[in-house]
Every structure is written in C-alpha cells, then in structure tokens.
Design a protein around this nucleic acid. Structure first.
Ligand SMILES: [Mn+2]
Ligand SMILES: [Mn+2]
Ligand SMILES: [Mn+2]
Ligand SMILES: [Mn+2]
Lengths: 218, 218
DNA sequence: TAAATTTGTTAGATTAATCTAACTTTATAC
DNA sequence: GTATAAAGTTAGATTAATCTAACAAATTTA
C-alpha cells in the first residue's frame, strides 16, 4: 500500500509526463512545492517499489505499474468529482479540493457504489476521461478553441484548467460543457475571439481563455 | 488544525471518558493499540494545545475545547454513516470503516451538504445521536434489552456495539432499529431471553446480545 | 570552448509519530 | 505494612517526510 504522500507524487508524475513519458525532477519539485532533494529521495523510494524508473541525472519515468496506480487514483478523483456534481448538487468549480482528499480513501466498495449510482460515467464534470478499473484512460482528439477559425461552429467538450478562478469566469459568462459556440471573428494581433452562443450574441474571449477550452466541430 | 492522528486520539478520549470525564492512559493505549509511552507523549502535546488536562500519574480529561473538537469529528463520522446508508444504499454493517476515513475530510461544505440532503438527521444508522454544529450531543435515556423483564414489549432504538460481526448477526435474525420485541421468558441461570418479533415467534437471544441492544418501552 | 547558469545529488538536520528498555509511582495482595 | 503487580514516565532509537547547505553534472550563453 502506498502512503497518501506517495500517491500524490504518482499522480503528479502522470500529469507532468510529456509524450515520451518523461518528467524532470525540477518540474515535479515546482508542481508539488517540495524541494528537489526531497523529490530525489522520494524517487529512489518509488524506484525501490518498482513504480518509477530512476537513473541519476536522467528524466524520471513511471513504470507500467506506476502508471496504473496513478491512473487508479485519478479514477477515484474523477468519479468523486462526478458524484459531487451529479448526486450532491455541487458546482463544477467546487469539487476539486474535496476530490483531492477523497481520492485517498481506501474502500473499493465505496468507489464501486459511486460508479454504479452514476451509471458508469466515462467523463468527469470537466470533460476529462475517467480511467477504467484497469487504469486505462483515453483522451478523445479534441481541438483547442484557440485553434479554430472564423466561421467555425464548435461545442465545448472539456476544460484544460480547472482552477476556481477559470471555472467561475466561465460560469459568469454562462459557458459550460455542451455549449455551442460560433466564431464571429479572430483578432490577428492577439488572437482574441469574438463569439456568439445561446443568449450571448457578442462575447469577446481572450486567447488565454480560448487556449483552455477544448471543443469539437459540430 | 489537528492532524489525523491527533483527531483519532481526541475521538478515543471522548468515547472512553467515564461519568467523571476521566480516561486512563492504559485504557487509551489499549483502545488505540499504541504503546503507553507514545500515548503519554501525545497527551503532553494535546495538553500544550489546550485540548487535554494532563498531570503526571493522574487520569486524563478532555478540556471543553477538546470535547467540542472530538464531538465535531463524531458528527462527521455519523453524518457520513447516515449518508452512506440513506443515500448510497450501504448496509449498516458496511459503513463504519468508510466513515472512519471520511470523518477526517476537511470541508465544511461537504458535510453541510450531506446534512442538508439528509434533512438534518438527529440519529445515525446505529441509533447513536449526531452531535450538532456546536458539538452538543445528547443520548436519550434508553434501557438495555438485558435490563427488561418477562412480559415487556419494547422497540429496538440503538445498538451499542457496531462491529461487523454483531451487525451481521442482527441482520441474520432480521433484527434492526424499530423492531418491536416481546419478551416471552428470561432464563435465570444465564439471563438468556426467549423473545418474539415479526415473523420470529420464538428466538433465543444470549445475554451478550441483550446487553448490546438499547430499547424503549412501547 | 570556457564561463555562467540551471538542474540534480549528497550529507546532515528537523519534526511527527512510533517503538523498546529501564525506571518510578500508584494500587493490590498478602 | 511490606511485597508484588500494574500503571505511568523517561530516555533514547527508528521511520517517513521534509528542509538547508554544499557539491556535482548538464546545459546554455557568450
Ligand atoms: Mn480535479
Ligand atoms: Mn476534473
Ligand atoms: Mn461508526
Ligand atoms: Mn454509528
């Protein structure tokens, strides 16, 4: 059994992995707000548990075992977020911090029950995929809104950033998953977009916002 | 903020307190399965935090602050048990271990929402009172079934022991909260009771069982 | 390519929570 | 009322997780 602390390192390793599955000690250190020597020593411990491939001065990589264990924690996190939104009535901006704690609960029955009551959902309230019981997780091929062109009509399917501030901003503009957006124009200078959706006939979205919204063509 | 470990000491202190509010180091040590020197040093730490009155070789006592903080953890535990049974469909024998973990979640919103969805319950699934937001908890004056006499008709209102084994035993006999029992006879030698209730016209209950069932006169 | 910067490691200290061994105080038995 | 047993404390060690300071390797800059 991994400690809560070890679980948080595994989760961070998975989410920081690049396309090659590599993570730098420094990036992990900054992400967790834990000093580099502490990270190095934890990596040796996780390597001893066959969860991480560790070689001095080389980038870190999760083993298959490490990837699976990390994905199963993500699974608990996202099932929890979905449960909090769907069954308890929380807003999508309220659930992350609670899920950060509940993801460490050790009780297969508890998460199996959530899954059942939710009808075995594939996505969490932010559009992120919920890994299956074997730790398999697939992201659909979404585009960023920022990559779309004038005249495109797209549907919001996921958010990249899930900070309170960003989600509250989206709430204030009535932007949520499923909303269909038409791109009226794109400012060449800073990539700001002017869009229309629902009752909002002329909203301006900064590139920072458009970079954080995943969409699919309608 | 108290650590998870400190919270478990506080809870144990409250539940082991006698009528004078006193707890022995030795009893606490056995209850938590932690050696006495460890307990002594933790008591000094809790005393420094004004949660426990500690004097060498004297019995331990929670301060008012300590009592309140302990009761608020019990509140979270019992609200959780009630939620698991009422809203998620768990059996009363399945919820204690999950609640032991969830009681340490730091999120007033989460427990407030549970409370609201449950309609502000006063009792948990085992008939124990749920302390209010100020840590106030009152046990009604119940009798033990073992204290009742031949001919009495009583209703089960709470269980003292909440171990899996005991609750599974009760399930196997279809004994649950609210069941009305008539006492047919009491064996003088060992206080075994012969009772009838529902479809069970002649069940024999050992004194060990009768000691653990709280009832009120019908 | 040599210097400067960034990244990563080693060594040693600290804190929380635990333990065992040895000792002291209090309670119980004779 | 002393001897024995039980309860409680003190001292010192251990483990997990963190830190700072000093050093080493790798990368970037000039
Ligand atoms: Mn989240
Ligand atoms: Mn999410
Ligand atoms: Mn319980
Ligand atoms: Mn209970």
């Amino acid at each position: 059994m991994n400690s809560l602390v070890e679980e948080n390192y595994l989760k961070a390793l998975l989410s920081l992995s690049n396309d090659k599955g590599e993570v730098n000690v420094n990036d992990l250190s900054k992400h967790l707000d834990i000093k580099m020597p502490t990270v190095t020593s934890m990596m040796k411990k996780l390597a001893a548990k066959k969860l991480v491939h560790y070689e001095s001065y080389k980038p870190l990589r999760l083993t298959e075992k490490g990837k699976k264990e990390a994905a199963l924690i993500i699974r608990k996190h996202r099932l929890t977020e979905m449960y909090l939104v769907e069954k308890m009535g929380f807003g999508w901006e309220q659930v992350h911090n609670i899920a950060e704690q509940i993801e460490h609960i050790q009780s297969p029955e508890f998460f199996a029950k959530m899954d059942e009551l939710l009808g075995y959902p594939k996505l969490d309230p932010h559009g992120s995929p919920i890994p299956d019981k074997n730790g398999k997780m697939v992201w659909k091929e979404y585009s960023k809104l920022s990559e779309c062109k004038q005249g495109d009509t797209v549907k919001i399917v996921a958010v990249i950033n899930t900070s309170d501030e960003f989600l509250n901003f989206l709430n204030s503009r009535e932007l949520s998953l499923g909303v269909k957006i038409k791109i009226k124009s794109v400012e060449l200078f800073d990539n700001t977009m002017v869009v229309s959706y629902g009752k909002h006939l002329l909203e301006t979205l900064s590139n920072m916002v458009c970079e954080r919204l995943l969409v699919e063509k309608v």
